[in-house]
Design a protein around this nucleic acid. Structure first.
Lengths: 256, 256
DNA sequence: CGACGTATTGAGTTCATTCAATGAAAGTGG
DNA sequence: CCACTTTCATTGAATGAACTCAATACGTCG
């Protein structure tokens, strides 16, 4: 029920799959052909996950770390009362499951928001291969650290921003990530439901709707259902606090 | 102005400092005496940071990763308008600075909440030493992964919980961490200001005060300024949604 | 002691929520 | 393929939890 491996018989183990999330991920770290081939062979390619289906379930033992090859995933945390926090949406090229390393089991549910394709590697293999390869190890450290930074940014949003700011920030963030993948920064599809966006942003569905229609009315975005066109990036940036960038400048108070 | 190294002249490099955050941190990973000594030598011990003083400033290049040996630190993110999100409080034995690995510079400010002692290791050294040592590398991975999990829990709190729940959860969390350090789970000192607690929990100072007095009135806690006594753990747990534990049970919806 | 930052408490406001109703879209099965 | 059901999205009205503003008490430090 985890999804179906496509073409694993037809395709020899280690063959490069088109736009493979893992291959793209470790490519910048590995100049060595030998190491590249080893990694490619360790990856189980093209694991399909249908929309709405789980890739990882909270509580299950850590086996694989996945890289998203195609589609869209959400990572979420639930409590017994049914309250849910979506902690992130993953785009192609991003890793999922690394947060399981600490406890040995996945702490979050990871679910496909669109029909998706993931490539996985056994954590044991990743571990083993990175032991012998400093560049790879470093690359992994950086990925985990980046995840922490992303989480901190979401905390900031959840702790400090108004509904309008949250939605604007969300759209800018998605836009930038799509642009980095070579897609349009202005036009994209919010394939996740409003409820999922709401959960991610710490708001309710109705609030998302209201903000969206407000932004639409102000001609900052054009909404047609799940399709979004950003008509004014400045407009969005203005909403996120007149500049929106995190302050790297030092404002530390040094008493005594 | 980063603090003062104490006794670095009197103490030979690598000597074990009492309750050293780093030594305690890597001890469980290293059975090998040789590796242990190497690590101990690489650590710059007993870096004192006075209350209110920064240990790390956002924007500065990554040099050291610190482990807290004594005291209390806060990690925070600020924007240009002066809004601040405290992303975490660090207790002895915990690492700070690992989130800097991704970008090569510290993304957060880390400040001493109490007079503190930190032990640091150059990231380059940590990196080098962990290359040759799988156990150490793994230990580091786990620490980073744990940080991601902590962040996810705070996101859940910020996105889903009422003011009362947030404060109750905060007290339970601190209590458990103090207990794990061998201190009292029931009586402890909230040495951070109400403002800092508020920032951490995504609330305002006044709200913290109100919730505290409310809990005090219900005999769930006893508050005298910064000193807290938990009088009813069940009371706190009940507030955090009748059980407070994250749901590991599967509630995934599998359509089709 | 006096002064400044911190904490508490009260009164009034606001923004996001809840509740409710309708419309749109998507999946199901005859 | 169409009717049926279900889920999702939008909109409106009323509520409420946390906020802002303001005033007072507490504590810490020079």
């Amino acid at each position: 029920m985890r999804g179906i491996s496509i073409g694993s018989a037809a395709r020899p183990a280690g063959a490069i799959c088109a736009g493979c999330g893992w291959c793209d991920w470790f490519a910048p770290a590995l100049t060595d052909t030998q190491a590249t081939v080893e990694m490619q062979c360790a990856v189980e390619h093209r694991h399909a996950v249908r929309r709405g289906c789980p890739l990882l379930r909270a509580g299950e033992p850590l086996q694989m770390i996945y890289a998203l090859t195609r589609g869209l995933l959400k990572t979420s945390l639930a409590d017994l009362e049914g309250r849910v926090q979506v902690t992130g949406f993953s785009l192609p090229g991003e890793l999922v499951g690394i947060e399981a390393i600490a406890g040995g089991s996945y702490p979050c549910n990871v679910t496909a928001v669109e029909d998706s394709v993931c490539c996985g590697i056994r954590y044991a293999d990743l571990d083993r291969l990175s032991h012998g390869n400093g560049a790879l190890q470093n690359h992994l450290h950086r990925a985990m650290s980046r995840e922490i930074n992303r989480d901190h940014e979401l905390m900031f949003l959840l702790g400090n921003m108004s509904a309008d700011e949250r939605v604007a920030q969300f759209l800018l963030n998605l836009s930038a990530r799509y642009a980095a993948l070579g897609r349009s920064a202005a036009c994209f599809r919010l394939s996740m439901s409003r409820r999922e966006i709401a959960s991610y942003l710490g708001l309710k569905v109705e609030t998302i709707s209201r903000v969206m229609t407000r932004l639409n009315g102000r001609r900052i975005i054009a909404v047609r259902g799940k399709d979004i066109e950003v008509r004014s990036f400045e407009g969005l940036q203005q909403i996120v606090g007149d500049d929106g960038k995190r302050d790297v400048a030092v404002r530390a108070i040094v008493p005594h």
